[in-house]
């Protein structure tokens, strides 16, 4: 390699790492300040803590009822994501494999509905479900996620199922499999890459979502992590140490999850964008 090219390459590498350092510095400041007392943060938010005390973490963990919020987030994300994948793939399958006119209309309506922003629906949604006394339940929230997630999921599966050859399914049907058996034994396993992409995109969306759960989940025992963290911030606005510990507690599980699955997550985002 020519020396000039080599120098350029080193310069490029250094500047990219410097940029990454700046990029991630906000998290670094949250981390170091989460160990400090309020007074220490006000006098110097920049330096390392005098003592590495876990007091803030213990207090924040208890006061924000971290376990309950974490379990709520987990339950809501898990059931929504699984539900979207199963029901949408079945729907897309029947849309692709039959040429009934009604299916075509439904598919068109679902794709067109992807243009509707959440804000255009939220007011009547709260009105309708509030009027029926159905709000303030985790299961209703999951039900709504099924609705909001289905359009994109059906669209994504539709494109993929179209590319699967029919022969396997025909053979299975001749052997006496019912349509539902054909789907779960043959088609659904073939959809694994799409399902994985979809699960990743939906986990990122639902785990972090704020506006919809803030409208649906009213009592504090139902709150998800983003809600709990936000209200915690409202209560302890100037108790910085405690706040930083609360933020760290919310960020940490995501980072651990990412450390293990980063390859799939990056791939999922790439494929989601390409297919859409």
């Amino acid at each position: 390699m020519k020396p000039l090219k080599r120098i350029l390459r080193i310069l490029k590498t250094i500047s990219l790492y410097a940029l990454l350092l700046i990029y991630l510095s906000p998290f670094f400041f949250v981390l170091i300040n989460s160990f400090k007392s309020r007074r220490e943060i006000i006098s110097n938010p920049f330096g390392l803590p005098d003592v590495w005390s876990l007091d803030n973490f213990v207090t924040a963990f208890q006061k924000m009822d971290f376990v309950s919020a974490f379990v709520n987030s987990l339950v809501i994300t898990f059931f929504s994501v699984i539900g979207i994948a199963v029901f949408s793939s079945m729907t897309a399958y029947i849309f692709v494999r039959t040429d009934w006119r009604f299916n075509k209309v439904m598919f068109f309506v679902m794709v067109a509905a992807m243009l509707i922003p959440f804000q255009a629906i939220m007011i009547p949604l709260v009105q309708i479900y509030g009027g029926l006394n159905l709000l303030n339940s985790r299961w209703i929230l999951i039900y709504m996620y099924l609705g909001f997630g289905s359009s994109f999921a059906v669209f994504l599966y539709h494109g993929f199922i179209k590319a699967i050859p029919l022969e396997l399914e025909e053979a299975a049907m001749i052997d006496g499999c019912s349509r539902i058996q054909v789907f779960f034994r043959i088609v659904f396993p073939l959809l694994k890459p799409t399902t994985l992409t979809l699960i990743i995109l939906n986990v990122l969306w639902i785990w972090n979502d704020f506006l919809l759960p803030s409208l649906v989940l009213i009592s504090s025992s139902n709150r998800t992590l983003p809600l709990t963290t936000f209200y915690f911030h409202g209560t302890y606005t100037s108790d910085y140490g405690l706040l930083m510990a609360a933020l760290m507690l919310t960020i940490l599980p995501v980072i651990i999850f990412y450390a293990f699955l980063q390859k799939y997550i990056i791939k999922g985002v790439m494929e989601g964008a390409v297919k859409a």
Partner: peptide
């Protein structure tokens, strides 16, 4: 690449 993607994992509120 992995590093620059990190902010996207965390919700807008946080």
């Amino acid at each position: 690449r992995t590093g620059f993607f990190i902010p996207n994992l965390i919700g807008g509120i946080i």
